[in-house]
């Protein structure tokens, strides 16, 4: 239930935005999750529903998945992150701290570990819709 901690971060961030924008109720939250972290959508939604109270009692949560794109800083090669060639422990480690991907993944063209995660790293708050 690492997803629970991420859900709590989303709720806390949304609460701060609600205070700033004087929202009395949050109707919808759209969260973007990157493939690299392999957040379990069902557990995340379950966690959101467990955390629903006050401003969030009627909130609908939507999840948008984003492909993870990596780009080699050495040779410029771009590729999509895939878990197929990684063992279970590695996938689990990247799930907790996506940056450890640099220990396990190399550029598919030149073999360098010096790549950038250009898209789809972790979890992002994309949209909040509320009532003033």
């Amino acid at each position: 239930m690492h997803e629970w901690a991420l859900a709590e971060a989303v709720i806390t961030a949304a609460s701060k935005i609600a205070v700033k924008e004087e929202l009395k109720e949050i109707k919808e939250i759209i969260v973007k999750i990157g493939e690299l972290q392999q957040v379990d959508e069902d557990i995340l939604i379950f966690a959101f529903n467990q955390l629903k109270k006050d401003l969030f009692r009627n909130t609908l949560f939507y999840i948008v998945k984003a492909k993870s794109k990596l780009e080699c800083r050495v040779c410029g090669f771009k590729w999509d992150f895939k878990t197929q060639n990684l063992d279970e422990n590695t996938v689990e480690s990247i799930h907790f701290v996506p940056e450890v991907a640099h220990a396990y993944i190399k550029c598919l063209r030149c073999g360098s570990p010096d790549f950038e995660i250009i898209e789809g790293r972790g979890i992002w708050l994309e949209e909040i819709r509320g009532v003033k």
């Binding site: 961030a13 973007k32 979890i123």
Partner: peptide, 9 residues
């Protein structure tokens, strides 16, 4: 704008 929610918690 996309917001990283992690720092908030």
């Amino acid at each position: 704008k996309l917001l990283d929610p992690r720092s908030s918690v």
